[in-house]
Each structure stands twice: as structure tokens, then as C-alpha cells.
Simulated assay, not measured.
Amino acid sequence: MRWGAGIAAALVVGAMVGPVARAADVFTVYMSATGSDAASGLSPSAPVRSLVRVQEVLRAAKPSTDVEIRIKQGTYEAPPMQDWRFYVPGHTVSFMPIDYTYGEGQGGIAGRPIFRNVPSEPSGFWLQPRLPLDHADPLYEGGTTGLRFYYLQVEQYSAGGMSFFGDSERDVTDETYNPPMRQRGSKGMNGNTVFGMVFTHLGSKWAPCGATCYGWGAIVLTNSSDNRIANNHFTNIENHGAYAGHIHGLYVTHFSSNNTMSGNDFTYINGDPVKIRDRSNLNTVEANTFVRTGRAGFYRDEFCDMTCVRANPGLERQCASYHNRFANNHLISDYDGDNSSEAWTLSPTGLTNAGGAPCTIPTGDQRLHTAGNTTT
């Protein structure tokens, strides 16, 4: 009885103080498509309208806790925002529907807030997080940025949806080599989550941006590691004809390692839906579904070796990636629908081709491991 009474009392106290404690531990900014950027954004009755204003609010408040951007359902006509630089070291910054509860699926929300490009605005990504410019910032040299995105929809941006740019404004050229080698510009922009999102109608086919303009990918990771990309939908990720091969669902490049990409659906992508490049190691691409996607294959591993550099003056030399895993995926059909594409391709070829000294692959390892992929 005494133990039972103690447990009951503890539960009552927990029920009373739990929400209060959580409110104190999370700094919240509210958004609405009918809000105003003149508002404070600090209550549901005073929402702001743009991510530019959200960042201004956060910079002014300087929270030292987890942050949530609670976004009311609606359509946000939003030009590309390629200068997100707010992070809280040791904490997360989460973007989500106003009614989202962690751990619940799509059924727990009234719908996904939609971010749609403004046709008259310049080309670009919906959102491109970059590293801080202030040398005194704890994350100036990179690290765990802790951005989290849940159940939003992004559409009609020419360059793509999101670009985590861990080499922003950093020196990426090692000129002690001839020709120069690509080098890692920072510790990276790491430890982010993209979950339950919809990326649709992205690329120059859907957001015309000029004859020589094209998109890169729905999600691009550049020097960005330890991310989780799961349960998202990538549909109609397409460039206009001459640049079809340049766009991807997921483009993982330049020192982007230990990323998990699972449970995603890829539909109508006229470049290879998953592409890995340049010392991006130990990534897992598993349990995804591919329908009408891919030119050469469903998975593409590519890097620019000495031959490539000679054919493309001005590019830095790169090295192979290794120990990536492409497994248990459903490979239903390629973009043309004729199923002539390979499951995976390497360029340059060779599972153990590191790219020549100083590039290396650990002894006994190889660029790609595959298992359990099905075609039905």
C-alpha cells in the first residue's frame, strides 16, 4: 500500500509538472501562412510568416535550449532561403506542423504545411543550412547542428529541396597536390534528421530557371554526416531534358559519411535517385522503394579521378567512397519504364578502385556492398 501510494503520488506530480518542465526546456516560434513578419512569433496568436523572420527571432532571443518551429497548416509562398545559420550547440532545432507529436505518424496531424517557390524569385533550394560566419561561434568549424524536419511539403524549387552545406564559405582545395585535391572544408554539418517529408515537383522541369540552369537533388548532403533520412516521399524530381542526369533524390557528396537513408519512396526522378560521391563512406541505403526512377541505375557511386580532372580543367581531384551499403530495396522500374537500368553503377569502374594515390580503401573492403534488393 505504501509503495502504491508513493507511485501514485509520483505519477500525479509527474502529470502536473511534466508539461510545465517541457515548456521551460523548449523555445518555440510559431508560423502561419496568414501571419506577419512584424509579429513576435512567440505565441500562436502572434505567428510570423517566413523562415527569414524565424531566424531573426531566434538570433534576438538566443535560446540555450531545444528549439521548435511550430508551423500551422497552409501554403507558404516562400523564395529560396539559402542562409540558415542558427543552431544551439548540444540541442536540436526542429521544424514541424503545429499539431505534430513526436513519435506519431501522418495521421496525427491535420496535414503537411506546404512551402512553395515564388516563380519570380531567383533559383535555388527551399532551404540551405550553412555554417556560422562568426569565428567565435562554437559551430564555426562545424559539428553537430541538430536540425530536424518532420512532415512538411516542399515543391517547385529549381535547385532542389534542402542542401546541408558543410563546406559553406570554406577552403576546399588542397593545392599541395598537382592537380589540386578536394579537401574537407570543416568538421561538417552533422546529426540532422529529415522524416516524413514530401519533396515534389523540384528541378528545372518544374521551376524553369534558364536554358543552362538545373537542379541538383531533393536533399543534398555536402560534408554532412550522421544524418537520418527516413520515411520521405520524393516525387517528380526532374530537370529539363539536357540536364536530366544532374538531379537526384538524394545526393551524398564530399565527405558525407555514416548517413542512414531508409524507408523512402522515390517516384519519377530522371537522374539516378541516389548518388554518392567523394569519400562519403559507411552510408546505408536500405528498404527504399524506387518506381520510374534512374537513368544508369538506382544507385550511383561516382568520383572525379585523374582522368576526369584532365577532361574537366578546374575541378579538384577526388577519391572513391567505401563501405556503403545498398540493401533490401524494391527496384520496381527505371525512369523510362523499360527496366534497362542496372541496380547500381560505379564511375570510374572497379569495386576496389580507390582512385590512385593518395586515395585508399581499407584492405579487404570495397566501395559498395549489396544484398536483398528485389525487382518486384
Results as ranks from 00 to 15, higher is better:
residue 26 V to E: 14
residue 265 D to L: 12
residue 304 C to M: 11
residue 373 N to T: 07
residue 293 T to R: 01
residue 68 E to M: 05
residue 143 G to R: 12
residue 303 F to L: 09
residue 52 V to M: 12
residue 358 P to R: 07
residue 205 K to A: 03
residue 319 C to Y: 10
residue 321 S to Q: 09
residue 288 N to W: 06
residue 76 Y to N: 06
residue 349 T to K: 08
residue 71 I to F: 09
residue 88 V to N: 07
residue 220 V to I: 06
residue 47 P to V: 03
residue 361 I to G: 10
residue 81 M to Q: 15
residue 236 N to T: 04
residue 272 D to W: 00
residue 227 N to S: 09
residue 265 D to H: 06
residue 12 V to S: 03
residue 240 H to I: 00
residue 340 S to Y: 04
residue 33 A to D: 01
residue 290 F to V: 03
residue 243 Y to Q: 05
residue 5 A to C: 15
residue 69 I to D: 10
residue 17 V to N: 03
residue 91 H to W: 03
residue 373 N to G: 02
residue 139 L to F: 03
residue 97 P to E: 06
residue 226 D to K: 06
residue 364 G to K: 00
residue 101 T to H: 11
residue 310 R to C: 04
residue 156 Q to H: 14
residue 312 N to F: 02
residue 69 I to M: 11
residue 342 E to G: 03
residue 142 G to D: 12
residue 32 S to D: 11
residue 74 G to W: 06
residue 92 T to N: 13
residue 68 E to N: 11
residue 78 A to V: 07
residue 154 V to H: 05
residue 278 D to M: 09
residue 160 G to T: 09
residue 19 P to T: 01
residue 187 K to A: 11
residue 354 A to W: 00
residue 233 H to L: 12
residue 276 I to C: 07
residue 355 G to N: 05
residue 321 S to K: 11
residue 370 T to W: 00
residue 192 N to E: 11
residue 58 L to S: 12
residue 174 D to K: 08
residue 243 Y to A: 00
residue 323 H to D: 12
residue 51 L to A: 10
residue 170 R to A: 00
residue 188 G to Y: 08
residue 154 V to S: 02
residue 49 R to C: 05
residue 51 L to G: 12
residue 105 G to D: 06
residue 42 L to H: 14
residue 336 D to H: 02
residue 370 T to F: 01
residue 299 Y to I: 04
residue 122 P to M: 12
residue 87 Y to E: 07
residue 1 M to D: 12
residue 245 G to A: 00
residue 177 Y to I: 04
residue 16 M to V: 13
residue 279 R to S: 15
residue 163 S to T: 11
residue 39 A to E: 14
residue 167 D to M: 00
residue 112 R to Q: 06
residue 169 E to H: 02
residue 311 A to L: 07
residue 34 T to R: 09
residue 91 H to S: 13
residue 183 Q to A: 02
residue 318 Q to R: 13
residue 190 N to C: 07
residue 340 S to C: 02
residue 84 W to C: 01
residue 5 A to P: 15
residue 354 A to R: 12
residue 374 T to A: 03
residue 294 G to Y: 00
residue 243 Y to M: 01
residue 22 R to L: 14
residue 173 T to Y: 14
residue 11 L to F: 06
residue 114 I to G: 10
residue 126 W to L: 10
residue 57 V to P: 14
residue 299 Y to V: 08
residue 79 P to L: 01
residue 242 A to L: 04
residue 335 Y to G: 01
residue 8 A to D: 12
residue 238 E to C: 05
residue 250 L to H: 15
residue 300 R to M: 08
residue 236 N to V: 10
residue 65 T to C: 09
residue 109 I to E: 02
residue 222 T to Y: 15
